[in-house]
């Protein structure tokens, strides 16, 4: 048994790249399962179909879109091993600032009476800039002042909400131009959401930006030694997350026809929940946009389904909380299983 020679080399290894069933497929099945469950419950309790109602489905997807846009940014932050608690507040701040640049001229109490009836892209750009700036501050605090992401974005969450209130002394900004509100009309929010999702899905998968994002989440030290400018990249990821929260703010104010400081309350938690339900690991290095999109849909279906069944909002929250925890439990279980094979 000892003197077997050269031939026992371990070169006989299949070289083709094998594909595994992606996590998204299993999450998608969960989504289908939940939808079917509501369908059955619908017939049993209300004698009505849950799914065969285009209006309800549209409303559901519209609700998902805003959270979804935020969640796409938050997912990237979580992949780097961080967290963003500020997105809901940043949404409110951008919504109100954006709205102030989108008012009609026949409205006498406009915030900037000289700046009314502007073309639609001006408020859009203003909104994106405000969001990106908030994200930039988050990123700079985290990367250069080395503050934990939880704390830095918690600070931004509180401040941005305060700024949103201070901006108009708590007054809503209304009477927005038709050109601007068109952004949020019909199925436009859904189209924007899906376009953003596809864009970042590709960015994460096929670009250097994406590869670095995963690398930093998997091992920041190794990323640095591999020549990656970790700080700069983190600033970029947080800025993008802020930009997307800003975009969500623009869409939300265009759809509501108003900008208010109370918008987007607790959206950051829904966005984090969507990412986590979609398979993004809070430990960093793992996660995909497709999963997050499905995760957001699961939240949307739940909300819509419970409302359809007439379940009280308090109970909805109880179940939602349980689902988020369950998603993390499953994530932990998956991680343990992965580690067992090492």
């Amino acid at each position: 048994m000892a003197t077997t020679t050269e031939n026992t080399q371990h070169l006989e290894v299949p070289k083709k790249r094998k594909k595994k069933v992606p996590t998204e497929v299993s999450i998608f099945l969960v989504l289908i399962g939940i939808a079917l469950l509501f369908e059955i419950l619908g017939w049993a309790i209300r004698g009505d179909s849950f799914l065969m109602n285009p209006r309800r489905l549209l409303i559901m997807i519209l609700q998902v879109s805003i959270i979804g846009i935020i969640a796409i940014g938050v997912t990237q932050v979580i992949i780097t091993g961080g967290i963003d608690l500020s997105s809901g507040s940043v949404l409110a701040l951008t919504a109100i600032v954006t709205a102030s640049f989108a008012q009609q001229s026949d409205y006498l109490r406009a915030v900037y009476p000289a700046l009314t009836d502007l073309p639609w892209f001006i408020p859009l750009i203003v909104g994106l800039l405000v969001g990106a700036l908030a994200g930039l501050v988050n990123g700079a605090l985290i990367a250069f002042a080395v503050i934990p992401p939880f704390i830095a974005t918690l600070g931004m969450m509180v401040s941005a909400r305060g700024m949103a209130r201070a901006y108009t002394d708590g007054q809503p900004v209304s009477m927005l131009s038709d050109q601007f509100t068109w952004i949020g009309s019909g199925a436009n929010p859904v189209i924007i959401f899906l376009a953003v999702a596809v864009f970042f899905h590709i960015a994460l998968k096929y670009t250097r930006y994406g590869k670095y994002t995963y690398a930093i989440g998997a091992n920041p030290q190794a990323a640095r030694v591999s020549g990656i400018n970790v700080r700069r990249h983190l600033v970029m990821v947080y800025t993008i997350a802020g930009l997307l929260a800003g975009l969500a703010g623009v869409v939300a104010s265009a759809r509501a026809g108003t900008g208010q400081a109370g918008m987007g309350l607790m959206y950051e938690l829904d966005a984090i929940a969507a990412a986590v339900i979609g398979g993004t690991s809070l430990a960093g290095g793992v996660g995909r946009i497709a999963g997050t999109v499905i995760g957001a849909m699961i939240l949307g279906v739940m909300l819509s389904g419970f409302t359809f069944l007439g379940v009280d909002a308090y109970y909805q929250d109880i179940v939602k909380g349980a689902i988020i925890v369950a998603a993390v439990v499953i994530d932990q279980y998956r991680q343990r299983k992965r580690n067992k094979t090492t």
Binding site: K211, A215, N219, A222
Partner: peptide, 30 residues
């Protein structure tokens, strides 16, 4: 483990990480 590997990532992602900065990219794409 501390400063070399990206443990959660694949073999190829571990191997390619240092060369992504020069070459191997077309525009933003790898």
């Amino acid at each position: 483990k501390e400063t070399g590997l990206f443990l959660g990532l694949s073999v190829i992602e571990n191997m390619e990480m240092a060369v992504l900065r020069d070459g191997y990219t077309k525009g933003p794409f790898v």
